[in-house]
């Protein structure tokens, strides 16, 4: 029977192509507003993908802000020592949270369901408090401002245009990693999501895939934190408050958890709506709340799942 393994499928390809369009946006516009919205989308997509990886295994994680903070502060602290090489700091922003996630994963992945949710929430609170308690390293409640822009092949990524394109690059990189991982281990993740006990009794080493997912999700979140810091040129604790995990979970759930296009479309739609409805996004949270209720009660597939369903129905009707 079929046992084909592929690294990339259509959804992954579409996601990468769509995100790559961001590189060409500066050819058409110089609008600061559009740049700012796009940067928010790029950062949001990366963070939402981190949530999505764990959701593939039926684990809802509130730990994204914790690992974002690790990635962001790694870059900010590296900047103090004038380490700004784009490749080095990108690797650092991925690897530091990923390495921290190895021992943490060994602890928290013993828990399932509600208990996992609670422990990841607690983790984000702890990291937030740790930032306040270590002012010599992290600047405490003041954060670290004046982070130098990263340098790519000898050029500072300092202008609006360069920051946008760099964030775009990070989002594409994160999508390639996330897409590759979830596509390569699609069977394993899907089996754990649907029936962990059966998968394990058939011989699947479940903890190994959960740990791998957790570590990569931490690294991806680190990249999101990096992108955020390189946009603001500041690492501030308020950027990584535990409560922002809710936004990324909303992006993922509302976009639809079944495909990598879910976090992408969810982030795009919600960030756009946030900027459309209020200048400072003051309606955003209420909107997310209403959409979450709608998705949970009547459209469990989210945007992507519902569109797919309608598409199939139309095709069926035409036949």
């Amino acid at each position: 029977m079929r046992n084909r393994i592929s690294l990339f499928g259509w959804p992954e390809l579409i996601a990468v192509l769509l995100l790559s369009c961001g590189f060409f946006v500066p050819m058409f516009t110089r609008s600061v507003l559009i740049y700012s919205v796009l940067n928010q989308v790029f950062i949001g997509v990366v963070a939402a993908q981190s949530v999505w990886i764990m959701l593939r295994m039926n684990l809802l994680s509130f730990a994204t802000p914790a690992f974002m903070a690790l990635g962001g502060y790694t870059v900010a602290i590296a900047g103090r020592y004038e380490i700004t090489n784009a490749f080095v700091v990108t690797a650092g922003a991925f690897l530091v949270p990923a390495l921290v996630a190895v021992p943490l994963g060994a602890l928290v992945l013993r828990l399932r369901g509600t208990y996992f949710v609670l422990v990841t929430f607690v983790l984000s609170e702890i990291v937030q408090l740790l930032i306040f308690e270590t002012p010599s390293l992290t600047g405490g409640s003041d954060g670290i401002s004046g982070v130098p822009p990263v340098t790519l092949l000898g050029t500072d990524m300092a202008t609006n245009r360069q920051v946008l394109q760099f964030c775009c690059g990070i989002a594409v990189l994160a999508t390639v990693v996330t897409g590759g991982l979830t596509r390569y281990f699609r069977q394993h993740f899907a089996a754990i999501e649907e029936n962990e006990i059966l998968a394990e009794s058939l011989g699947l080493v479940v903890w190994r895939y959960k740990a791998l997912g957790f570590v990569v999700a931490a690294g991806i979140a680190g990249l999101a934190g990096f992108a955020l810091v390189s946009m603001l040129l500041t690492a501030h604790p308020s950027s990584f408050a535990a409560a922002i995990a809710v936004d990324f979970i909303a992006y993922t759930i509302i976009g639809g958890p079944t495909s990598i296009l879910g976090p992408l479309f969810g982030t795009g739609a919600l960030v756009y709506a946030t900027n459309l409805f209020g200048t400072h996004g003051q309606y955003a949270q209420g909107l997310y709340g209403i959409l979450i209720l709608i998705v949970m009660l009547v459209a469990r597939g989210g945007i992507v799942g519902t569109v797919g369903l309608l598409f199939n129905r139309l095709r069926g009707a035409r036949r």
Binding site: M1, N3, Q187, H188, A199, L202
Partner: peptide, 8 residues
């Protein structure tokens, strides 16, 4: 069946 073979 493919999953059973693969996981085994």
């Amino acid at each position: 069946i493919a999953r059973a073979i693969r996981f085994g």
